[in-house]
């Protein structure tokens, strides 16, 4: 059984994000980067499946050299080897181009039974890449998975839907995106960290994946970020003191004239 886990390195959720005016990325100086928390669920599930059924777990990411820290976290948890997609050609990839690159890498890897990834990355929160990859590979997928039992040639999963849960049986190979609650991710252990050092990590370029110049990076993207801005700061609330008879008309007037909500 071969499981491929798609991962992303993202800013720590406690980061105080700063945006420089006119730029299309956040200010990355001094930011602490971590393995996307939802990807931890995906990695944990893949490792648990391997422990139960045998086989191997391959992690794959598109990211710069720095992203190897996130790879190493997954390897230290127990994944077997890793693939990192890197190179100038990938610069400016949106969700679509990222999914395309990952799908190509997965095809090249071949021979997989299951693909797992987080339901979304907590940096841009777009929750698209997993499903796009499945579409590009032409395999079934399910999002927001909170339980997963691997059977013979298929998986039985529970996924969150609005107002309840849905149970599905899906033929493998398929792709699942992990939701919180799927499992309790293990911590990378000290021996795990040391073992991870010796695990194989292949770095592939767009060329290695057979992607043309117009298929990767900004050129292969369907969207582009024009500008980032911070949400407007909330103004301090206004407090009205006095007898209700006095202040209610005042508040009503302000709601009508200033806030324009009634």
């Amino acid at each position: 059984m071969k499981t491929i886990v798609l991962i992303k390195q993202v800013p720590d959720t406690e980061t105080k994000v700063k945006v420089n005016p006119g730029e299309t990325d956040i200010n990355r100086e001094g930011i602490n980067l971590v393995l996307n928390p939802y990807d931890e669920f995906a990695a944990e599930e893949a490792i648990k499946i391997k422990e139960a059924k045998g086989g191997e777990v391959v992690v794959c990411t598109l990211g710069e050299k720095k992203a190897e820290e996130a790879i190493r976290t997954a390897l230290a948890m127990g994944a077997d080897r890793a693939i990192r997609l890197d190179g100038e050609a990938f610069a400016g990839s949106d969700n679509y181009a990222t999914a395309k690159a990952l799908a190509k890498a997965i095809e090249k890897e071949g021979d997989y039974d299951l693909i797992l990834c987080g339901k979304q990355a907590v940096d841009d929160d777009s929750a698209q890449v997993g499903t796009l990859v499945a579409e590009m590979l032409g395999i079934p997928s399910a999002s927001l998975v909170i339980n997963c039992e691997v059977g013979d040639g298929s998986v039985t999963i529970t996924r969150e839907i609005e107002g309840g849960n849905q149970e599905l049986e899906i033929a493998m190979p398929c792709l699942l995106t992990a939701q919180k609650g799927l499992n309790e991710p293990r911590y990378p252990s000290l021996p795990g960290i040391m073992k991870a050092k010796r695990k194989k990590l292949d770095v592939l370029s767009a060329g290695d994946l057979g992607l043309g110049a117009d298929e990767a990076g900004a050129a292969g993207s369907k969207t582009a970020i024009k500008e980032l801005s911070m949400p407007p700061e909330r103004k301090a609330g206004q407090v009205f003191e006095g007898e209700p008879e006095e202040i209610v008309p005042k508040v009503a007037q302000l709601l009508r004239e200033e806030a324009k909500v009634i």
């Binding site: 820290e69 190493r72 976290t73 230290a76 911590y187 990378p188 252990s189 000290l190 960290i193 040391m194 050092k197």
Partner: peptide, 17 residues
């Protein structure tokens, strides 16, 4: 990288567990 990762994961474990 080894030092950093050990310190990071140890701190993570300490704060969470």
């Amino acid at each position: 990288e080894d030092y950093d990762m050990v310190i990071t994961e140890a701190h993570n474990f300490a704060l969470k567990e």
